[in-house]
Structures are given as C-alpha cells and as structure tokens.
C-alpha cells in the first residue's frame, strides 16, 4: 500500500509515540511489581532491618490456639504466614470478624525484643463466600 508523505510521517509519529509510551509504561509496571504494599507479610517484615521507631502494617493469619485475653481489652496472639510468626499485643476494640484462623492487618511497631505492638487492627476478609452449613461440611471433610 502506498501512502502519501504526510500520512507516512503521521504514522511514523504515532508509532514512535506508542513505543515511547510503552517503554514508560513498562518501566512503571516494573516498579509497581514490588512497590506500594498496603502491608508487609510476616516473613517480609522479619527480613527488614529491625527498627522499633518505624510504624508499619503487618498482615497475616491469627495462629490457631494463640489467642489469649489480657487485662481489660488487651489481647495477645501470634500472627503467622504459615512459615514464620510474630507475637502481637493489641489494646482496643476488636473487629467483629476477628478470630483464630482469620486474616488481619495490624498497624504498629515491631519492638526490639521481637514483639509487635499494634495500635490498630483491621480484619481482612477473604474471597470465599459460603453458607454456614457448607462451611461446617467442609470442616468435617477435612481430616
């Protein structure tokens, strides 16, 4: 197909713009892959250089059998990602979804002795939805 000089030039520019914008977009995606986590997982936080000053968010699952009630509204529990776990202290109101085996995101500081002191606790619900009977049936089916 033969194109007039003007159209050929315009096509060339469109191509150049697409390539340039694509390169930029690719670089941004590269950066996005690893950045802006709303929270760290347990293992990720333990790999970080410890600094008790910094406020971070920690996400994980409340380990089964670790929940203990302290004085008043204080609770102790372990957050785990099924590989490593961190003991957490939290004082305040618990979200209604909070229970053992449930995902939560805690905001607070990792102290030098390895204890995470949370100032805010948010429950993270997962993408599974089922009626209670089905959930009970599933639980029974598991060994």
């Amino acid at each position: 197909m033969r194109l007039s000089a003007v159209r050929r030039k315009r096509l060339m520019w469109a191509f150049l713009v697409l390539v340039g914008a694509g390169l930029g977009a690719w670089m941004m995606l590269q950066a996005l892959q690893k950045n802006v986590m709303y929270f760290y997982s347990v293992s990720e936080l333990l790999e970080q250089p410890a600094s008790s000053e910094k406020t971070v968010r920690l996400g994980g699952v409340v380990a089964a059998g670790s929940l203990r009630q302290g004085q008043g509204v204080k609770v102790f529990f372990d957050l785990t990602d099924y590989q490593k776990s961190i003991p957490v202290v939290y004082e305040g109101l618990l979200p209604s979804l909070f229970r053992e085996g449930q995902g939560v995101v805690a905001t607070g500081q990792l102290m030098d002795e390895g204890r995470f002191v949370a100032s805010q606790l948010l429950a993270k619900h997962d993408e599974n939805y089922m009626p209670p009977e089905v959930a009970a049936g599933l639980k029974k089916a598991e060994p």
């Binding site: 996005l32 892959q33 802006v36 986590m37 709303y38 929270f39 760290y40 997982s41 996400g59 995101v105 948010l122 993270k124 619900h125 997962d126 993408e127 599974n128 939805y129 089922m130 009626p131 089905v134």
Partner: peptide, 23 residues
Amino acid sequence: IWWHTLHQPPSIRGLETSMHWSM
C-alpha cells in the same frame, strides 16, 4: 492481585469462583 491490599481479591476469576452457588 499485584499488591497486598486490605481489599480481598476477586471471588470470580473467569469461570472459576470461590463463592458458593447459592450466593
């Protein structure tokens, strides 16, 4: 899907779903 977010991932991905049929 890319990041850890407080918002949960989608329950319906293509033809697969993690929602019970009745819901």
